[in-house]
Amino acid sequence: MAATMRSISRRDEMSLAEPAALPVATSAAPRLHVLKRFLDRFKASLPAYLLLLPSLVFLALFTYGAMGRVLIDALYQRATPKAPVRFVGLDNVSAVLADPAFTGAVVNNLIYAVGTAVPSIGLALLFALALSRTHAVNSALRAALFLPVLIPMVAASALFLFVFLPNVGLLDYYIGRLLPVLPNWLGDPDIALYAIMIITVWKNAGYYMLFFLAGLQAVPEDVMEAAHLDGAGPYQRLRHIILPELKPTFLFVTVIAILNAVTQVDHVFVMTQGGPSNSTNLVLFYIYQQAVEHYDIGKASAATLLTLAALMGVTALSFRTMANREGGP
């Protein structure tokens, strides 16, 4: 989230600053020239900086400050419980990377990310295509599909806890008649992660649908009409016009879905606590375990840094691709 906000604010600041700086470029001697240009540019962009200051203060207090502290904490560790903390450099990072629980959580998180992003984006696109025309019935259906988004994740998890109850839960009550052996949805390490993924898809598909609905508005009418006149069928229109037009939306929604896969672990807290046998342990929950259960701030901070780095990498990469696309023909 912070990364998103930052990249947006940086873009604002540039667009305000640049036009004012350009006219000065042709006057004055070379040396002075640079300095003066710098000063002028600073003077011109001063209002922009002032306007950004309040959010900068809060970001510094609650985001950069905390990140800085995590960075410091990640470099310290104590050898035994009574020993004082000492500087250990990157030892915490290598300890985290060597921890099978962490690598297990990363693998789980990758499965979880792919397994939630793909179906929820697919469903969202399907919903959006089906409900793109606005009339009363579609509006009602849109509202119905959007409803899960409005339920807090913790409340939804508590609800699904009862749906998934072995033998007596809602799911087993109906599916029980069809299956020879009832699965223990949250108690079987082979199934639990997929049970958790179902909730995420149920909850997020409606949210992503909104972006696709917005994206569909941007598909140019005239091109569609032309294709229609040229005899392009519905599949060809989807394949060659709608999907290419939706590319930026896809990219954006994918980034959001990946961020969600890492930052939303409320249901893990409520439903499984990462179990059984670590089968639903995700990276953020691993960090929580290190900090709270193991009381190991050094390792928790190191794992946080690794996660942040990965998330920032994904975000930067995708926004660069997006910027290139916008700038291109």
Partner: peptide, 19 residues
């Protein structure tokens, strides 16, 4: 005994419902 790991609330619900 039901297979797998069953949390406390699921066990008490199961008992209350006669399962």
């Amino acid at each position: 005994h039901p297979p797998g790991a069953t949390p406390g609330p699921a066990v008490s619900t199961s008992f209350i419902s006669g399962n």
